[in-house]
Amino acid sequence: MPVSLANSGVVYDALKKCDIGLVSALPETWLVHLIRMAEDDPKMILVRLAKEEEGVGISAGAHFAGVKSAMLMQNHGFLASINGIVSLAQLYRIPLLMLISYRGHFGERDPWQTQGGGVTEPLLRSLGIPYSFLDDPAKVEKRIAEAQTWAYASLHPAALLLTRELMWEEPA
């Protein structure tokens, strides 16, 4: 599978450096290594979800409990979570760190991903959720740390888009 194991490791290490103690996730191709890393880490609470929106509630509970969390999801999972993001995380000022695999963008071969790819950034913008891209392994640690710092300073969701450049090793 051409999902980058090395870069998944870079992302996972960056989450650990940010003191993430709980990860919620719903499997998707680009996230498989990250989820396995969370599963193999005895110090990480991994919550596998039935639907990504549950992760908003779980992260809210973790925040109340004083545990830093991250959500791993595909952009279609972000679409499925929007009510929870608005009417729990934004309404109650919960800092969410959302790592969203940016499927359906240029280079995507799966036709079914393309519609969601086109609406991901416009939706983040319309919700007022700041985002940056994880596209260069050298910058992953800094970008994740900065997004988390902002999320806690503002008590608001922040998003990081996991890009094809970072996650996929097969030429287009």
Binding site: G21, L22, I45, V47, E53, E54, G55, V56, G57, I58, S59, A60, G61, A62, F64, A65, G66, V67, S69, G84, L88
Partner: peptide, 12 residues
């Protein structure tokens, strides 16, 4: 999401 919030609290 009430049950999910409770689950996050209970696990942490």
């Amino acid at each position: 999401l009430g049950s999910s919030t409770g689950l996050g609290l209970a696990l942490c």
